[in-house]
Computed example of a mutant assay.
Amino acid sequence: MALGEDEEPKVAVEEEEQRKSHKQIEESRQRLAKLLFDGTQMVTNIQVAADLRETQRRAEEAELKLQSHPSVWIFNLSLSRTWSASVPVWRMRLGALAPFSVQGQTHGTVVAELKNKDEQYVQAIKKQSDDIHLLLERMEEQIRLLLKTYRHNLLQIEKAFELERQELLDKNRKKWEEGIQAHNTQEVRSV
């Protein structure tokens, strides 16, 4: 055999062996990249949902303000007209209590709205708390899954390298034995 002929198969075999380990490394890298992407998506979905809820809440709030604004204006206008027309009548009938009863009705409406807003705020805080707990659970699960996957892939890569190492040792041992056998045969012939 010529020297060049021996080198080509050796290079091809080495490239094939490198491909096995590199293939395993690339497969592991792709699996881990997908796992990281999926985990990021899971966490991001919570934030997107929270942002969407907040956007909807703000839109509803703006709609309520638009709806209530004209009615408050009309209410105030009618109240002022009624008030100016009925002040003399109220003073005669109820004395000094008339302005306070009208204010009490308006105050009751405002208090009811404030209670409603407080309840909405408490519900929003509770939902945010639930989202945070869900986010933490998903992050912890993602960390456990990542660690498990890293360990598994590391073992797979180590096995691929160990298999390549063993194949190289076996091949080199076989070549060594063949070389020794050829040397011994040559010595026997020369004697």
Rank of each mutant, 00 (worst) to 15 (best):
E15L: 13
R151Y: 11
S28T: 15
G104Q: 07
W73Y: 09
P9Y: 11
R165Q: 04
H133Y: 01
E7I: 09
Y121E: 06
Q18A: 01
L169R: 09
E17V: 00
L155S: 05
L66S: 02
Q67M: 02
L66A: 04
L168G: 04
L66T: 05
I143A: 11
R58F: 06
I46R: 08
A112I: 10
N184Q: 15
Q18L: 11
Q41W: 01
S190D: 15
E27C: 10
G4K: 10
H183F: 15
A112H: 06
H152I: 10
A98W: 12
R53E: 07
P88E: 04
Q105I: 08
K65Y: 04
A12Y: 14
K148V: 02
R19W: 00
Q105D: 10
E140I: 10
P88I: 00
F75M: 08
R173N: 02
L35W: 02
E113M: 12
L66Y: 07
Q18W: 05
L52E: 12
M42Q: 08
F100V: 12
Q120C: 06
T40S: 11
D131G: 00
V102G: 03
T149Y: 09
P70L: 14
Q30L: 15
S28G: 15
K20L: 04
M139Y: 03
R81A: 14
H152G: 03
E14W: 14
G179L: 01
L32W: 04
E137Y: 08
K174G: 01
S28H: 11
Q67H: 08
A182I: 05
S86I: 06
E27D: 15
L163C: 03
Q123H: 05
L163V: 07
M92V: 07
A182P: 00
E27G: 03
Q123S: 13
Y121A: 09
Q123M: 11
V13I: 10
K159N: 13
K10E: 14
E167V: 10
R138P: 00
K127V: 13
E54Q: 01
G104I: 12
L145C: 07
L94R: 09
V43D: 07
S68Q: 05
T55P: 00
E113H: 10
R138D: 09
L35S: 06
